[in-house]
Design a protein around this nucleic acid. Structure first.
Lengths: 240, 240
DNA sequence: GCTGAATTGTGTACTTTGTACATTATATAT
DNA sequence: ATATATAATGTACAAAGTACACAATTCAGC
């Protein structure tokens, strides 16, 4: 078989092996919900090949760090946030995806509360771009963004992660609007409320919206403990 | 910021960069359904550190191949199969996961028809092991297997990929049994049939089971075209 | 303090989907 | 001919999803 005659990890000292000549990076697709719009945090590419184009926030993997740690480090270093929803999406490994050599990248999906971020930001080169307005991007980052958005759409229907995009206390209108923004559909307001209440995941915090120019709505918080109990009874059913 | 003073792809020739010293592999979690049991195709590890332990089928990524291609190559070289369900699951990147150095691996989920495979197999070192009987494995392969199984459980409920485990023509009993094996639940037979028929994805091939020691059931095939039409109307709904 | 604008909060009838459950029919093995 | 194993089928009830309308509250502007 072909692979038996090629140098491999059993036949060759590591430092001489052509197999150990890959670079790895992580790229974070950081979603935020701001003023009724789904946005993603981008930076202008610093690579000549992609001058002026928008790029995801990423960095090369270091030798002494786990892949998951690297994504966490990028988030922390670039946004100052340390406690966010962060999950691996997919690894992109096309041969020519990076002009500097064979660099594969693992995409991570992050959901942050834009209000938290704004208090701590340090870099002005970063921008929250509305997802719907993004055209071309550097590298294969447009593909990565599209893939991550699809994953986000699926995941918010399966797990209550959407609350990571909102403040601790939120109105049902905000909650419904984030769903609608991400999924690109509209829900009936009464049915949406009914559905959310019957999940038992909302806690009424007995406060009202402030500074709205209409009748203020009640505020709710996500009840994490209730979810921990519910999620053990894993749903089983076919839906294709 | 810390990363600005480290060597990076903008400041250093590629061949000298410490960042280009990673190896990447793909590992295929190849599921098959055989004699009523969910099995996975494994090989005994050839690494001294894991002598005698079971390992997933994998290989190092080559410099001139895409990541997806590498997984396809492993499947083809090891099983002779060229047309199977194959999808990336996740990349595992713990620092010390491989004894020979910093090797990250991307896991791929494959679903094959065991009958097809048996006609073409060449390697005797490979074995179909019942998933329920697997204990420890080499490297972090047990973690990879568990992760992939969870992904499989989710995906068969969302997309009609389970047919890849069966022969082209199958009985409803077989279909139900695969679902039950993978999900670890039991369905009511009448309700299961009703559900499957109403999906419109089954074509009655007007044949009966052969060589069964009881009344033979009708055989069906998966109607791919019907699915292509249905899947555009993406289901939207909350289910947590 | 009245009016208009915007949005909240609520309930019911209907449809669709899921669930529980038992009997007759057909093929094989002996 | 009989026993065994499984196929094929329908109905009543429960649960969940959907469509839909009106009164109440707050703010802004006059």
């Amino acid at each position: 078989m072909e692979e038996l005659v090629r140098p491999n990890i059993n036949t060759t000292p590591v430092e001489l092996m052509p197999d150990f000549q890959f670079a790895l990076s992580v790229d974070c697709v950081i979603f935020g919900y701001d003023e009724g719009v789904l946005k993603v945090l981008l930076i202008e590419s610093d690579l000549p090949a992609y001058k002026g184009q928008w790029s995801l926030l990423g960095d090369l993997l270091r030798h002494d760090e786990d892949l998951d740690e690297a994504s966490y480090r990028v988030l922390r270093e670039r946004t100052g946030l340390t406690d966010m929803f962060l999950e691996q999406v997919k690894t992109f490994g096309a041969v020519n995806r990076h002009p500097a050599g064979r660099v594969l990248t693992t995409a991570y999906l992050a959901l942050v509360n834009v209000k938290d971020y704004q208090l701590k930001k340090k870099e002005n080169a970063l921008q929250w771009k509305p997802v719907s307005e993004i055209q071309t991007m550097a590298f294969d980052h447009r593909l990565i963004l599209d893939t991550s958005l699809t994953v986000l759409q699926r995941k918010i229907q399966e797990e209550p992660i959407i609350f990571n995009l909102l403040e601790k206390k939120f109105s049902l209108r905000d909650l419904q609007h984030v769903f609608e923004q991400i999924l690109g559909v509209e829900f009936d307001r009464r049915n949406f409320r009914k559905k959310l209440f019957t999940t038992g995941l909302l806690t009424d915090v007995n406060e009202m919206e402030q500074q709205v120019r209409h009748r203020p709505g009640r505020l709710y918080s996500f009840n994490q403990k209730a979810y921990e109990q519910i999620k053990r009874k894993t749903f089983v059913g076919l839906q294709f």
